[in-house]
Design a protein around this nucleic acid. Structure first.
Lengths: 364, 364
DNA sequence: GTGCGAAATCTATGCGCTTTAATCGCTGAG
DNA sequence: CTCAGCGATTAAAGCGCATAGATTTCGCAC
């Protein structure tokens, strides 16, 4: 590559000063049409491309929104950048790998950035999300969106002192960060209610990890509905996502061995639900015939699955858009407090709960 | 937001020079452990975040790969940033809108960037992809990936004089740009052969637009297979993607009116195929009973559709990865000529051609 | 205690652009 | 014919960091 031409080269060729070149691009109306054209002509002839780095340095703005995204997916599964793990086409069932939760949210962020004239910077930690990784992206954006549990809180707080930070899909909290969330509790309560009231189930177990605020809220929704119906709670531990399949298989085996198969498995995520459905199928147990299984998220994979997965659909794209929107607003006019929004969810009744698939429910 | 602390602030607090601060982050091993810790402590206390802009300016590298992505989707459909068009959750069948072709390719680019330690900059034109839009992203990356027909050739050529540019999924050509493509011709020939040999169809029409190199190659594949079988060619024009539904409906109406319904519609993309299947269903024509329909791409939407869509699956994620890989290689060691790669495709026999759905073919 | 090479640190400069303040050139009023 | 007034243009000062080259400090042998 030839040396990139700079404002100096353009200025020299056009016979003006670099300031005029700069104005030509940033404040065209302040430049006489004749000189403007001369500058543009020179720029074109030279193949001039303004350096965003220099621009950002001088102006203090980057015009970019950052998203710490893929790391979310990878870290949860223990994937390494140098691994040979298939990330798409190679996998036989890659609609189980893509698009997942964060892919849809990312799309939302991307759409909103597009609409507001920002570019999206997608950064990812190479190992545990340390500060060094984040610096690479936090240092070059005007605002940062992150998924919960991907970045240590103290690092996040530090960053938020410099640029607005929004947590995507985290319950309202007291961290002082901006945040967008969904009605986890209400959605799960409604879903549980469906199993109790429509299907008359009583022995309903909740499957989900501890320690994740959003999952805890889903549990609350489940618990509330069960208690309200006078039914006993029952919980099943879950493994890290990377080991869902093995864990689900052994759990199912235990159920069978103990002869204590619940009537329904209310999972905290679609991914868990699908893993359990696989395990149940492998064990020769019919879903929804012998046991109902439900998820939470509304991924494509649940729609493609047979039986299709009854679940609670989160407005994932909207979630991303709302997050990006908050950031961009904050960049334009920094507010004092944390901005938070909660979005509604939608119950998607499909086959895995025992209902017949409805055309209207085929959609996600 | 408080003024962001700089190397100077950190240096002052740690009692060292800014060079040492810089080294501490870039060449830690060249700094004595004691001073390194002092610097890190100061940085932590101050909430220091290195400015990527300044870094990029000084070093001449940005560590970012750019992708001109969403614009591709939007422009083809005539969507505007300020429009109220639903971009996801709102749509009843958004698996028809996401993930599409470019979404999967983008994922590939993103994965490869992650593995190679780059960040991804997703930029989008706000209107026609003019130079101004591109400058915003081309100026801040070390390499740029674009979809065909999204950026005027001359602009692309200009940019490619400064940074490596790769065209995603464009047949090998003479533009001198790097490129990745798939075996469009071979895949379509194989698919057409399937319809002829397995299903014994003779009146097979090709549906696809003119003027797009990759689509032309698909046509060649279709034509080659037909000629080889001694069958006549038949083509159907298509409308811009944004008007696919209306156009497909009127075309189907013409077929019916003229009583000349082909035995099969070989479409150049899955999106076209789905539009025609919708139109055929609306006209009360059974697929694949009365007419077979096939696509090309291997989108999720085709898998979810009933009947599921027989198609040719492109390795989209791999396509994106290959593109990013070429760019990153070129950044590291600029080569002289254009690098090109062609990837294989895979025939996915599903229901819309008249075959029974096979478990193995359910996958995409 | 000295001397020396290596390691650590610092000084100084420039990356390409934005932006403020100052200068220039022109117009029209006096 | 002069000069205030105004728009167009420019000079100059950074923005925050990397890095070559200069300088200081360190570790160690004598």
């Amino acid at each position: 590559m030839a040396k990139r031409p700079t404002v100096y080269d353009v200025a020299a060729r056009a016979g003006v000063s670099i300031a005029t070149v700069s104005f030509t691009f940033s404040q065209p109306h302040k430049v006489r049409p004749a000189t403007r054209e001369a500058v543009e002509e020179a720029a074109r002839a030279l193949g001039y491309l303004p350096s965003a780095s220099a621009r950002g340095l001088a102006s203090g703005k980057t015009g970019a929104i950052g998203l710490f995204s893929f790391a979310y997916y990878a870290r949860e599964r223990g994937l390494q950048p140098d691994s040979q793990t298939p990330f798409g086409d190679e996998a036989n069932e890659d609609f189980r790998m893509f698009p997942l939760y964060h892919d849809e949210v990312q799309r939302g962020v991307q759409v909103e950035c597009w609409r507001r004239g920002y570019v999206l910077m997608v950064g990812d930690a190479k190992g545990a999300a340390g500060e060094a990784d984040l610096a690479g992206i936090a240092g070059r954006v005007d605002g940062l969106a992150v998924f919960p549990n991907t970045v240590p809180d103290d690092v996040l707080m530090r960053i938020s002192r410099r640029i607005p930070v929004v947590e995507l899909s985290i319950p309202i909290n007291n961290t002082g960060l901006h945040g967008v969330s969904v009605d986890n509790e209400g959605g799960m309560a409604e879903l549980t209610g469906h199993l109790v009231e429509v299907h008359g189930l009583r022995d309903i177990a909740f499957v989900g990890p501890k320690g994740f605020p959003d999952k805890e809220h889903r549990f609350s929704g489940y618990a509330g509905a069960m208690v309200a119906a006078g039914l006993p709670l029952r919980t099943v531990d879950t493994a890290p996502i990377g080991h869902l399949a093995d864990f689900a298989a052994s759990t199912v085996a235990e159920f069978v061995a103990a002869g204590k198969l619940p009537q329904a498995l209310v999972c905290s995520t679609d991914e868990e639900a699908l893993a359990y459905m696989d395990a149940l199928a492998a064990a020769g147990i019919d879903v929804p015939g012998q046991i109902a299984v439900t998820g939470f998220d509304g991924l494509v994979a649940g729609l493609v699955n047979r039986p299709s997965l009854t679940t609670v659909r989160q407005p994932l794209v909207e979630l991303g858009r709302a997050g990006a929107s908050i950031l961009i607003d904050q960049v334009a006019k920094p507010g004092k407090g944390a901005v938070t929004r909660q979005l509604p969810v939608k119950l998607m009744i499909r086959e895995s709960c025992g209902c017949q698939a409805q055309p209207g429910n085929q959609v996600r």
